[in-house]
Each structure stands twice: as structure tokens, then as C-alpha cells.
């Protein structure tokens, strides 16, 4: 570093004003100024020539920009408060309360239709006995056919009763070795309302063999069947005013003896005969009540 003296101090002063001195040079100069007051006065006069920084704003600065800065709005994640309140809960489905009687009635009608039109695959041959669950109501098309061995003894009866009428729910089952005739057809749970053939002497029977297809589940089976035709006297009706045409013929569809078979094939389903009869009884009771109500009105 150059020593400060009377010949070079002004250069140091100007450089000091220009802020071009390092720390060592600044200390040396200040020390020299302290020793020489006149140099100090000259330093102050030179400092007055230094311009103060002024804040000046350029007018019309906007014209200087090229392609103004695009305002980019950064996507912000806005979360809706209390979002849970917007959710909708599925209405709890009301429990389905099945009206059993309606269901039973509809089921009974459906089953009857299925059975009526050849889907029934139970023991087609049946025996009209006091244990059968059949009932004749307005049987226009019912045919009762019975075959008896003798007219006097009437020890055997192969009477098989079927009914084609929807209203009549006669189920015919063939039963061998029946010692008694009368041919009975009872209603569902109503023992009193059944038809009775008075005596065997009034019955006329004949037998013919046919090959009739029967439905056994999904199998259509063609079986040779024997059809027995029984011509009976007009059947006396009970107080329920049931009407029945004379000379009803019950036609058998199957001659197989299957008293042990307790099931009925309805379509692809196998239904117990007792339950099946129970449904029919309930349906009959329902329709009977309705009819009574109408008659009362």
C-alpha cells in the first residue's frame, strides 16, 4: 500500500469519495486526516459533490414491456367444508311384509294352473276316499269315472277321479282294494262338503287303454294308461249349494299304484302332496269367503 503524504492525499480523498479504497487504505487516510485538519476540511467539501440517491420513476414504463406477463392463477385445492352433510343415504328399504294369504292364494292358483295343464306328475290315478283332498265346486267339465268289479259287492273299486275344472280340485288317486264305495270327494278341510255317490248299483264303469304322455319333472314320459270310465248318478250337494251336472265323469291319467309317493312334481320342483293340498284348501277358503261376501251384499 502506498503511503499517504502531502502529494498524494487528494487522490486518496477522491478515491475515498468514490468508495474505491479498501479497509487498510481507509484507516490510513482517516489517520492522516486526523493529523491534518485542513485535509479534513477538504474532504468535507469533496463529499458535498457526491450526489444523493434519488428515487425517480420512469414514466410510461408499461410501454417498455414485451408481451405482458400472463397472470397465471395456480389452481388451488378448495375443499368444501362439511362435505359429509351432502351425502345421501339410501333409504332403508322397507321390510317386505308378505301377505301370506295373498301369496298363498297366488301360489295356489299358479300351482293349480301348472297341475291342470299337464305339469302334475303325481299319482294320477287316485282313489276317492274320505282322506282325499278334493272338492267339487261348479264342475261343469268334471268327469268322474269309476271302475268297479261288481255292482253288488263293490268290494273293489278302481275308481279314479280327476277333474278338469279349475274350480274343482278333485285329486284322483287310485287305490286298490277299496272295500266300500261311495265315491267321495271332499273339500279342503271340509269333510261335510263332499259329494257322495249313493251306492254302487248306480255306477256304470268301463275301461279303455290309452298311451298318454305324462310329465315327470323334465321328462316327458309316455305311459300306457288305462282309463276307466265311471258313470255315476247325480251327486247330492251340501248346503253350500254347489251345483253339479249329472253324469260326471272322472278320468284317470295314470294307473300306477304309488300310494307311497307323497310328492308332486310342479315344473322342476317337487312339492309334498300334503302341503300342496294345504295350499289348495287355503285358496279355496279364500275364494269361498269372497263369494259369500258378495252374496250377502
Amino acid at each position: 500500500m502506498q503511503n499517504i503524504n502531502q502529494h498524494n492525499y487528494q487522490d486518496f480523498l477522491l478515491r475515498y469519495i468514490d468508495e474505491e479504497l479498501d479497509l487498510r487504505e481507509i484507516e490510513a487516510l482517516l489517520a492522516f486526516v486526523a493529523v491534518h485538519p485542513a485535509v479534513g476540511e477538504e474532504l468535507e467539501s469533496l463529499q458535498s459533490t457526491k450526489l444523493d440517491i434519488e428515487t425517480v420513476t420512469c414514466p410510461n414504463k408499461a410501454v417498455l414491456y414485451k408481451n405482458i406477463f400472463p397472470v397465471i392463477v395456480e389452481p388451488t385445492t378448495i375443499v368444501y367444508p362439511n362435505k359429509q352433510n351432502l351425502f345421501k343415504k339410501e333409504k332403508e328399504k322397507a321390510p317386505v311384509i308378505l301377505l301370506k294369504w295373498w301369496a298363498v292364494g297366488a301360489a295356489a292358483v299358479f300351482i293349480f294352473i301348472v297341475a291342470r295343464y299337464g305339469m302334475f306328475n303325481g299319482e294320477a290315478g287316485g282313489v276317492l276316499s274320505k282322506n282325499s283332498s278334493s272338492k267339487n265346486i261348479a264342475q261343469k267339465n268334471s268327469i268322474v269315472k269309476a271302475e268297479t268289479s261288481t255292482a253288488s259287492n263293490a268290494t273293489k273299486s278302481n275308481a279314479v277321479v280327476t277333474s278338469e275344472s279349475l274350480a274343482s280340485t278333485n285329486i284322483v288317486s287310485k287305490q286298490q282294494n277299496i272295500t266300500t264305495i261311495p265315491l267321495q270327494s271332499g273339500g279342503f278341510g271340509d269333510v261335510a262338503s263332499y259329494h257322495t255317490i249313493q251306492n254302487a248299483s248306480t255306477v256304470k264303469a268301463s275301461e279303455t287303454e290309452h298311451s298318454i304322455p305324462s310329465y315327470n319333472g323334465s321328462i316327458i314320459d309316455v305311459k300306457p294308461t288305462v282309463i276307466a270310465e265311471i258313470t255315476a248318478a247325480p251327486i247330492a250337494l251340501n248346503e253350500a249349494a254347489e251345483t253339479q251336472e249329472p253324469n260326471e265323469i272322472i278320468e284317470t291319467l295314470d294307473t300306477e299304484a304309488a300310494s307311497s309317493n307323497r310328492s308332486v312334481m310342479v315344473g322342476a320342483f317337487e312339492i309334498d302332496k300334503d302341503k300342496f293340498r294345504g295350499l289348495f284348501r287355503k285358496a279355496n277358503a279364500l275364494f269361498k269367503n269372497k263369494e259369500n261376501n258378495k252374496n250377502e251384499k
Binding site: 434519488e54 420512469c58 417498455l64 414491456y65 414485451k66 408481451n67
Partner: peptide, 18 residues
């Protein structure tokens, strides 16, 4: 870049004008 140029306008226009 263009962005740098515009930043230069923002930073130095007043100084140059002064």
C-alpha cells in the same frame, strides 16, 4: 428470455431513466 427482458424493465427502467 422474454421473461428476463421484462424483469430487466422492472428492475432497471427507473435507474436508466434517472
Amino acid at each position: 428470455t422474454e421473461k428476463d427482458y421484462n424483469e430487466s424493465v422492472l428492475l432497471y427502467a427507473d435507474n436508466v431513466y434517472r
